Simulated assay, not measured.
Amino acid sequence: MKVVMIPSGFKECMDANEVAVAMEAGAKRFDPCIQTALVPMMDGGEGFAKTIVAIKNGELIHKKITGPTGEQIVSHYGVYVEGNERTAVIEMAAAAGLKLVPRNARNPLKTTTYGVGELIRDALCLGVDRIMIGCGDSGTSDGGAGMAQALGVQFLNKHHEVIYVTGGEDLLHVQSIDLSMIDPRLKDTPIDVACNWTNVLCGEKGVARVFGPQKGASPRQVQLLSDAFDHYAKLIENEIGIQVGHMPGSGASGGLGAALLAFTPAILYPRFDLIMEFIQIEDKIVGADLVITAEGSIDFQTPQGKIPCEVARIAKKHGIPVIAITGTIGRGAELNYEAGIDAYISIIQKPATLEKAIFKAPQWIEESVDCILRQVSIGMKIGVKQTVRQEEKT
């Protein structure tokens, strides 16, 4: 049996490489001779820069920047050379990711993407020819205003005074935008962005309502953020002439997508499309008997461009069954059956605290894959018996 394992990471727990190793250990536990292929995937979130740099034999550059809660942190971005072009790879999660926001400080009204802008500015200082940005695993909901400020955009209140936007709620106080001080190097530097293409900034399916609660927002805060983003989008339309409110990807990373569209020459791409330029998975899938994928949570959002369903889409072209393992099974998870995932299971075996689940995740992933393959083996044996019986009847 050949089993291909194509996991993403488990947010705030294990990166994709760690998940893949645990999955393979489970397969070998079932059968030491089983044929496996590991293809750890990233979706623009944690590990994006390191993975791309490793594939391209580039280098990581470490930089002290402003973290999402305003404290100084050490972050990183990557640089690689291909042909005559030097590309910087920036991972927003390394500057403003949820993992960088302590649980007791998760107030999306008060977190900033300023550090993302600092990484972009540092890359420009290196004289790179192109910038690639991965949007995922964010811990912010400031509409990308922090990033914009780091690049020279000034937000003004009703008195025409410059104000510092430290989080999403401050957007309500912005009455005009001054672009006169924006970094001039931006206009000559192409920026490609890997993001969740289905996320939009405004409306009932806007990022505040869909993702705000995941970042610690109460119902009141969700409404406040939604109102702030509506105001922000209208302001950008009036001042810059771009209708970002419902543009694909505008809601990515708490609205960072909107700021990239409004204030930089960025082009946003469905993250899987851009990532597939670096990680070829179809060749690995062809000829497999089974694909096992993984993600920290499977719910109604998974079919909207997340790795398990993108993997399933490719596997289905070749008639290969797909099973997903996950930490939690959320609302609307059954939609994944329609998206190509044949079965999904949670690795969590019994009630546990989040801390224990994180600690036990490697062991539980291993045990879950072992269990899956035992069940698949039973199904194969039943299939053989049914075939024999059918042949005997004929």
Rank of each mutant, 00 (worst) to 15 (best):
M1N: 08
V4C: 11
M5C: 06
F10E: 07
V19Q: 08
V19K: 06
K28M: 06
F30Y: 13
T36D: 05
M42L: 15
G47V: 05
K50V: 05
V53C: 12
H62E: 12
K64G: 05
T69W: 07
V74E: 15
L100P: 01
R106W: 15
N107R: 12
P108Y: 03
E118N: 02
C125K: 05
C125Q: 06
V128R: 09
M132E: 13
G144K: 04
H159N: 14
I163V: 11
I163W: 11
G167I: 03
L172D: 06
V174A: 04
Q175W: 14
S180V: 03
D188V: 07
D188P: 01
I191Q: 10
V193Q: 15
V200D: 05
C202L: 02
L224A: 13
S226C: 12
I236W: 13
G245R: 12
S253D: 13
F263M: 05
L268W: 10
Y269K: 06
R271D: 10
M276K: 08
E277W: 02
E277L: 06
F278E: 14
I279D: 07
E295L: 00
T302V: 00
K306E: 01
C309G: 01
K317P: 01
H318D: 09
R331W: 10
E338N: 12
G340Y: 11
A343W: 01
Q349N: 11
P351W: 03
T353M: 04
I365E: 12
V384C: 11
Q390D: 12
